[in-house]
């Protein structure tokens, strides 16, 4: 049901404008038989023109409004997809956890307490990082990192994640932060798909005096120095298939600028690292859902 008064006004304007055009046309056809509504074509156009201008402006305004709504909906869809992936990961982890418990139970029943202790110790080390990610004050970011790490690991990519902050004073909406890190992590995974040697992805999140630092690194092919300067330009891509690529880093840069952050890239034979810095907003509670 149409409820927005703006849409209704635009609809009526379009219909009225069409009606006026139809009447204009018909009155010219009927001119030999009936007295015309318009003295001449110029007057008719002068009467209809303001309608046309107002209608066009209204439609342009509505178009922009709906493009923004569609963009927000698209971000929400990405966010929901990340949450869904995250939920699936949790289910898989629960399944793994049951298997681990059965192993520990078996070891203890056999009286192999040292082996059981070692097994539990190795499990703790493995679980510590995901737990740290979950403790982030940005559920959307935590869910995104979890899902991307699971995706990378499923492709045989070794992942390291070091989180030493909870990002309590970072004010970036979940939809934008997932766009930033979704693009960076996707690019890293894609670069590692093309890598020949070691395939490793790392993410470091920590805080310094000047703000929060995020490092997204990968051991994929190095980006030549000449290209590093252009990497954040719209349409720029290092991928062979250029169609549909070259928007991600431009979006990342735009969003980083929007939140008064900084982004830099360093690439060598050891790997490529994107470093982002976002200011801390002291006294705020950060962004949360």
């Amino acid at each position: 049901m149409i409820k927005s008064p703006l849409v209704l006004i635009a609809l009526f304007l379009v219909l009225l404008e069409t009606l006026l055009f139809v009447l204009l046309n018909l009155s010219f056809i009927a001119a030999p038989a009936f007295p015309a509504l318009w003295p001449d074509a110029v007057t008719a156009i002068q009467i209809i023109a303001p309608f046309f201008i107002i209608t066009s402006l209204s439609l342009i305004f509505l178009l922009f409004k709906y493009v923004n709504i569609e963009l927000e909906a698209s971000n929400q869809r990405i966010h929901i997809e990340n949450l869904r992936e995250s939920l699936e990961n949790l289910r898989a982890q629960r399944h793994d956890f049951m298997s681990h418990l059965q192993v520990v139970h078996g070891l203890l029943q056999l009286g192999m307490t040292d082996e059981a202790r070692e097994y539990v110790a190795s499990l703790c080390a493995e679980i510590r990082q995901p737990t740290r990610i979950i403790s982030l004050n940005h559920p959307a970011l935590a869910a995104l990192i979890q899902s991307k790490i699971a995706l990378a690991e499923s492709q045989g990519i070794a992942c390291q994640c070091e989180v030493t902050t909870e990002l309590r004073e970072l004010i970036i909406p979940g939809t934008d932060i997932t766009r930033i890190f979704g693009n960076l992590l996707d690019n890293a995974i894609e670069a590692l798909q093309r890598a020949k040697g070691e395939r490793r992805l790392w993410l470091r999140i920590y805080e310094k005096e000047e703000g929060y630092i995020f490092e997204v690194g990968n051991t994929g092919p190095a980006i030549p120095l000449a290209l590093q300067a252009k990497i954040f330009e719209r349409g720029f891509t290092t991928k062979k298939n250029k169609e549909g690529h070259g928007q991600g880093l431009f979006i990342v840069k735009t969003l980083v600028d929007k939140y008064e952050g900084r982004i830099s890239v360093h690439s060598s034979d050891q790997g490529t690292v994107f470093t982002l810095l976002f200011p801390q907003h002291r006294g705020s509670q950060g962004f949360s859902f």
Binding site: L23, L26, S27, A31, A36, L37
Partner: peptide, 10 residues
């Protein structure tokens, strides 16, 4: 004149 009827009938 032609057309005004339509505008009244509407």
């Amino acid at each position: 004149p032609f057309g005004v009827h339509t505008l009244i009938l509407l």
